[in-house]
Design a protein around this nucleic acid. Structure first.
Length: 723
DNA sequence: CGCGCCGCGATTTTT
DNA sequence: TCGCGGCGCG
């Protein structure tokens, strides 16, 4: 490949980053500025021009999807597979290191990964074992505490409790949890990172090997790194010849609440003080109007690294702000716009509805359903997180490694085989006494006659089941092992006996699991592992899609968080109200408010051509009627970027042209509505109708309220209330 | 041991 | 409003 090809279609700044000499570098890449393109071309440049072997390149991303995409794009650019290049998530790479150096990392060879649900269950079990009341010691905060400390690189013995009783107890729980994990050979997500860090810290020779090996390190979405991830990178690149390129955008840091630390960008500049900074500010995605609005909003945040997106494209359409009477009205408005967009010959999949929290999707779904518009919702349970799948994986985990207590607990009585709380308590007690796994404890109890009668019988059958399956599986292909785990365990029969759509879907998912096993290719780096073990690791590290993608043309519904990194020609941001967005939970804390504002910035910059931002004056939140005012973020948008399809709260204003078509008297009267009529509005009380205008499903009604003067209300016809 | 009822709590999500 | 988890009964 000709080297110039790598630079040809890049702008000056992009070219500067791609062709920079080997050095440490920060690329501040604004939304839609061609960030991935720069990363991909940079890697190609390193191979082509700097003669760095793929084997010596490490690229880190945050999601498996991003890693896959990056690998795919580099391989298609280079027109060859690049298997020796390490491209993956922090967790995936840490896992790989731990597999390769399990002994140095003090892990058993067949250690298993605990996902967050497994972790939660294990913590609850620990609490029970410690005789702690869950009311007082809620498992969620404890899980948060454990992971938070691990993210900071802290083991229980490193934590200073300041003699505080609660703190001491928390530390104790953390320690007990960790002991349980170690005993069963279980590693949670945060542990992967922490162990990988400790591995390098305690084994300088291992670290030196990787420092020598990786001549180039690249990190995507650097603003999302947490402290342990940064510490890990610092170890790897803490040598004279380091060559690390970090790419990120402080304005798109929206994961502070889960430990991401934007300040890592500043730390990087301090720790790698020879690093140069390149700003990518030219945007290839949105109209000038959208960029202007987004820039102005984000400018309200303090202490930014500074960056202003620009485009050489057109202004495009103004941003439309719609004030709905309530959430239903808002949803219907959005659906009406999508419908007309579709009628103009556009694809539904080019439109997205974004919201702050998942509960908001419900009304939107109903409205879409009502109009018969196809939609796809992102979020919810992923494939490998589903109950039946986790059950099946539980059996597979026991087949793979019988001492996996988390798996043992999960399936020992699923389907029910007469092993209840009583028996389990006995097994757990034995586990505690012998400091061994539940599997071992069970064998012991059966041998010593510590269990009798039906319980002993049932436990014996369970042990035999797992033993038999394990020995029969050793010769089978992976999908046959999965099939065996599902059928022979009685799982399949259990869900067959259940009736209803739900159970049917579960059976289909179980079949799907077998298919997934069939299609699973053991990755090259895992060639030392058994296919089963590799598959189990894959299932934990990559939870899979939330929904079978299907190729139906559909509107995309998701939270703004989920939308990060995506783009759509037509975007709706719904529920842009005080209390919803920014969220109530923000509590006006400045730092959290700024993260909300960044989230707003992320949402707005998803839109390519047209952006609608909508809110509802009244909405049902947790079954209660809430009155909200327009979000402060809306007020931060310059008025010349905006077209308001709404009332203002105190002034009556002329109706814009697009609404000049008067609503027919007939239509209004059908809705039980006439001029001069007394009506009520939930927010403003009683008033008299002075005027109305409108089109489509919506009317603008001018009402005079004694107390508040005259107002235009944008209402859907059905929402008028006569007194 | 399993089922059903009641009470409580409730962003954002990837690995 | 809704879903989950605890508890009590059969």
């Amino acid at each position: 490949m000709d080297v110039s090809e790598l630079l040809d279609e890049l702008n000056d700044k992009q070219r500067e980053a791609v062709a920079a000499p080997l050095s440490n570098m920060l690329v501040l890449a604004g939304a839609g500025s061609g960030k991935t393109r720069v990363l991909v071309h940079r890697i190609a440049w390193l191979m082509q021009v700097e003669n760095i072997a793929p084997y010596s390149i490490l690229a880190v991303t945050f999601t498996n999807k991003a890693a896959r995409e990056m690998r795919g794009r580099i391989e298609s650019l280079m027109e060859r597979p690049l298997n020796t290049m390490w491209i993956g998530t922090f967790h995936g790479l840490a896992h790989r290191l731990l597999r390769a150096h399990y002994a140095e990392a003090n892990l058993p060879e067949n250690f298993q990964i605990l996902d967050s649900d497994d972790q939660y269950r294990l913590i609850r079990r620990i609490l029970k074992a410690m005789n702690l009341d869950e009311k007082h010691w809620a498992p969620r905060p404890i899980q948060w505490y454990i992971n938070g400390n691990k993210d900071e690189g802290l083991r229980p013995e490193h934590i200073d409790t300041h003699g505080d009783h609660t703190q001491q107890k928390m530390r104790e729980i953390y320690a007990a949890y960790q002991e349980a994990c170690d005993r069963s050979g279980l590693v949670d997500f945060a542990e992967l990172l922490l162990r990988a860090h400790e591995l390098w810290l305690k084994n300088p020779d291992v670290l030196a090997h990787y420092q020598r090996r990786f001549r180039a390190v690249l990190v995507d979405e650097f603003q999302d790194t947490n402290n342990i991830q940064y510490a890990w990178l610092r170890l790897l690149c803490g040598h004279e010849n380091s060559n690390i390129m970090i790419v990120g955008d402080d304005d798109q840091s929206i994961y502070g609440w889960r430990g991401a630390n934007v300040d890592n960008i500043q730390h990087f500049l301090k720790d790698f003080n020879d690093a140069s900074t390149i700003r990518l500010e030219q945007n290839y995605r949105s109209t000038a109007t959208i960029l202007k609005a987004a820039n102005t909003v984000i400018d309200n945040n303090q202490g930014r690294l500074g960056k202003e997106l620009w485009t050489d494209g057109d202004d495009g359409e103004p941003i439309s702000i719609y004030a709905g009477f309530n959430d239903l009205d808002e949803a219907r408005f959005i659906v009406a716009q999508i419908s007309s967009w579709q009628n103009q010959g556009n694809q539904l999949r080019e439109s997205a509805i974004l919201y702050r929290n998942n509960a908001q999707s419900r009304v939107l779904e109903e409205a879409l359903l009502h109009q018969g518009i196809a939609y796809r919702i992102y979020g919810g349970l992923r494939f490998f997180e589903r109950q039946e799948i986790k059950d099946a994986l539980g059996y597979m985990r026991l087949i793979n490694h019988a001492h996996d207590d988390a798996a043992f607990e999960r399936v020992v009585n699923t389907p029910s085989r007469g092993l209840g709380e009583r028996t389990l308590a006995t097994i757990r007690e034995q586990t505690r006494l012998q400091n061994c796994s539940m599997w071992q404890a069970s064998l012991q109890l059966l041998q010593d006659g510590g269990l009798k009668g039906r319980a002993a019988n049932a436990l014996n059958q369970f042990i035999t089941l797992i033993t038999d399956m394990a020995s029969e599986c050793s010769e089978l292909a992976l999908e046959e092992q999965a099939n065996k785990a599902i059928k022979q365990s009685g799982l399949y029969a259990m869900y067959q006996a259940e009736k209803g759509e739900k159970a049917q879907a579960r059976l289909e998912n179980l079949e799907e699991l077998v298919t997934a096993c069939k299609q699973f290719v053991v990755p090259e780096e895992a060639d030392e592992m058994t296919p089963l073990s590799a598959f189990l690791a894959h299932a934990s590290l990559e939870a899979g899609e939330t929904q079978a993608s299907g190729d139906q043309d559909a509107v995309q519904l998701m939270t703004i968080h989920t939308a990060k990194g995506l783009e759509f020609p037509l975007v709706f941001m719904a529920g842009v109200e005080e209390g919803m967005f920014p969220s109530q939970m923000t509590n006006d804390e400045p730092g959290r408010m700024e993260e909300e504002r960044r989230l707003c910035y992320v949402g707005m910059t998803r839109a390519m051509k047209k952006l609608y931002m909508t809110y509802a004056e009244m909405r049902r939140v947790y079954g209660q009627e809430k009155y909200h005012t327009a979000s402060r973020f809306l007020r931060e948008i310059p008025s010349h970027c905006v077209e308001e399809i709404r009332l203002t709260s105190t002034v009556s204003r002329p109706v814009p042209n697009r609404f000049s078509k008067a609503a027919s008297h007939e239509r209004m009267e059908q809705s039980g509505f006439t001029l001069g009529q007394r009506v009520s509005h939930r927010k403003f009380g009683e008033g008299v109708v002075l005027n109305y205008e409108g089109s489509g499903d919506h009317a603008r009604v001018q009402v005079n309220f004694d107390e508040f003067g005259s107002k235009w209300l944008v209402l859907s016809f059905a929402k008028l209330e006569a007194v």
